[in-house]
């Protein structure tokens, strides 16, 4: 299958007055194939969003990216460029639109910026996409202002806006976190259907393991700016190998009975990663040995569908 996104040794550094102040993304490798959903999961502050932004070349000010990002062989254009083959949808549907213009106007603008299309065709194209994402009354939505729609409807409109650009890659950063479960489920089903229909690849960023399990084909677990475990969702979720992945899954209350203790991961994500040597998970890891503080574990393939970055992987 063709890769719509290939990331090799991606690093993101924050620089203040010439000095590197933090390195929240440290050597990430990822592939997303056409028609595939790759999940990116990890605790808050692990570097998920920065990875997504860096892949598109739209980093916040003060951040610098190194490494190689390609899309089917071409270096990826920043997603703000008209011919970028990638689109991104953010978490908060409420703030993503300009409150003073109608949605129709904003979607038409995107269309005219990214595709050569006449004004009259443009409206029907926008309406078609609003219908495509399951909005019940596209004409009404077209004429509505953002505050007149619910969060779920806005998130659908965001996805329609992304689709208008006919992306080959769609990056979704916590697309359902601000939504209620029932609405969230509808959005996820929609994404699942659309990628089959259009064949674009999806990078789905979420801190919610349940969502990842439900919709992704493959998953990459991020910790402290590194992929520490990756593989098919089946393999990683049913047979987690890395202590961090195990910790995350063990922390879920689902299926636990009263009185049973959850296996919480002690401590919290390190804030600054500049001074880290060895395994970044060491201070929270129940299996840590002295070697972990010297050796920086790299992703090692284990069978065909799983790779783990832990020096004690064999013994676990």
């Amino acid at each position: 299958m063709t890769h719509v996104l290939t990331i090799r040794d991606l690093n993101v550094e924050f620089i203040d007055r010439g000095k590197v102040t933090n390195r929240p993304v440290r050597g990430i490798d990822l592939n997303v194939s056409a028609g595939e959903i790759l999940g990116l999961v990890g605790e808050t502050g692990c570097g998920k969003s920065l990875t997504g932004l860096a892949a598109l070349g739209i980093l916040p000010r003060g951040a610098r990216r190194t490494g190689k990002v390609t899309m089917g062989g071409d270096p990826l254009q920043p997603s703000s460029e008209p011919d970028s083959p990638a689109a991104i949808v953010f978490q908060n549907p409420g703030t993503a639109f300009n409150p003073v213009f109608t949605l129709g106007r904003q979607l038409s603008d995107v269309l005219s910026r990214h595709r050569q299309i006449s004004r009259s065709d443009s409206k029907s194209e926008v309406l078609r996409h609003l219908g495509l994402v399951g909005l019940p009354d596209p004409e009404r939505v077209f004429l509505s202002y953002p505050h007149q729609l619910s969060g779920g409807m806005l998130q659908r409109a965001m996805i329609a806006m992304a689709l208008l650009r006919q992306p080959r890659l769609l990056i979704l950063d916590e697309p359902t976190t601000a939504l209620d479960v029932t609405v969230a489920r509808q959005i996820l089903v929609l994404i699942d259907e659309l990628r089959h229909e259009f064949g674009f690849g999806v990078l789905l960023i979420s801190h919610n393991l349940g969502i990842i399990r439900d919709v992704c084909d493959r998953v990459a677990v991020l910790y402290a700016g590194r992929v520490i475990e990756t593989g098919t969702v089946d393999a990683v979720m049913n047979n987690p190998r890395h202590p961090y992945t195990r910790g995350l899954l063990g922390a879920l209350p689902a299926g636990r009975s009263h009185g049973e203790r959850l296996s919480a991961i002690p401590g919290s994500v390190p804030g600054n990663l500049l001074s880290i040597t060895g395994c970044a998970f060491m201070n929270r890891c129940p299996h840590a040995v002295i070697d972990c503080s010297f050796t920086d574990p790299f992703l090692t393939r284990n069978g065909s569908d799983q790779a783990v970055a832990c020096i004690k992987e064999d013994e676990l």
Binding site: A184, Q186, G210, I211, R213, D214, V233, D234, L252
Partner: peptide, 27 residues
């Protein structure tokens, strides 16, 4: 209960095993 994430016994890998809940009026 149906909409809650992570409740499918086997994950929906590359298929349409997901079902959208029918919530009238929720949006």
């Amino acid at each position: 209960l149906e909409a809650a994430p992570g409740h499918k016994a086997s994950p929906a890998v590359g298929s349409h095993t997901l079902s959208a809940p029918n919530t009238q009026g929720s949006n």
